[in-house]
Nucleic acid binder design. Structure first.
Length: 200
DNA sequence: CGTTGGATTGGCT
DNA sequence: GCCAATCCAACGC
């Protein structure tokens, strides 16, 4: 199935976050193995948003958020976790969508290996349930920070999948956002209402 | 240059 | 429900 074009990401971040539901995030390993999952939960981090990493201007860490749409922004947090975003809007406008959960589709055996602790794999519904969990399952780390997902030979990209109708979509405040009451309460998290693969 | 706390998770009470 | 794990960029002095 074809990939979403760069123009898809070059739009309002909230619209992109909402329309990413049902799309398929694909990671191609060095040996050609495809790992993929249906996007079931996203969050928008917009220009001027006090919860966004770029709120106080450009820094070494958030620089990818200022790059062209379709670039990956992968940040390291809590000393051990990676989180994956796709950059949105025009280059120079800092914005991105955090992908928070996937319904595993391809390469589930490999994902179980990546997510195993002491030789024990979590239940399939937990493999990609959470932003750091999906990064571990798909082997997404700092090597993909600032990576153009629309490059011809890209090993990380998003396919069209099947858009989710409004009737099966729900919104809520974002998870783990503290500080500014506006940023904490605005409903910029979207998820597939009846999916067991959604976090929290 | 020292301090702080984070777009989280897993394990334990 | 609570808290430690474990790095490091950002910010304040």
């Amino acid at each position: 199935m074809g990939r979403l074009p760069r123009s898809f990401f070059a739009r309002d971040t909230r619209l992109v976050a909402r329309e990413l539901l049902g799309r398929v995030l694909v990671r191609v390993l060095d040996d050609g193995t495809r790992l993929s999952g249906r996007i079931v939960e996203t969050e928008a981090y917009c220009p001027g948003d006090t919860a966004a990493h770029a709120y106080r201007g450009q820094t070494a860490r958030n620089a990818p958020m200022f790059m062209q749409p379709g670039v990956a922004y992968v940040y390291f947090t809590y000393g051990m976790h990676y989180c994956f975003n796709v950059v949105t809007e025009q280059a120079g406008t800092p914005a991105a969508v955090l992908v928070r959960a996937l319904e595993p589709l391809e390469g589930i055996d490999i994902m179980r290996q990546h997510r195993s602790r002491n030789g024990v794999a979590p239940a399939d519904r937990d493999l990609c349930r959470g932003p750091a969990r999906l990064c571990r399952a798909l082997c997404i780390d700092r090597a993909f920070n600032g990576y153009d997902m629309l490059h011809v030979d890209s090993r990380l990209f998003i396919e069209r999948g099947h858009p989710v109708p409004d009737s099966r979509t729900a919104a809520s405040p974002r998870i783990g956002v503290s500080g500014d009451p506006i940023a904490r309460t605005v409903e910029w998290r979207w998820f597939v209402a009846d999916s067991p693969f959604v976090s929290r």
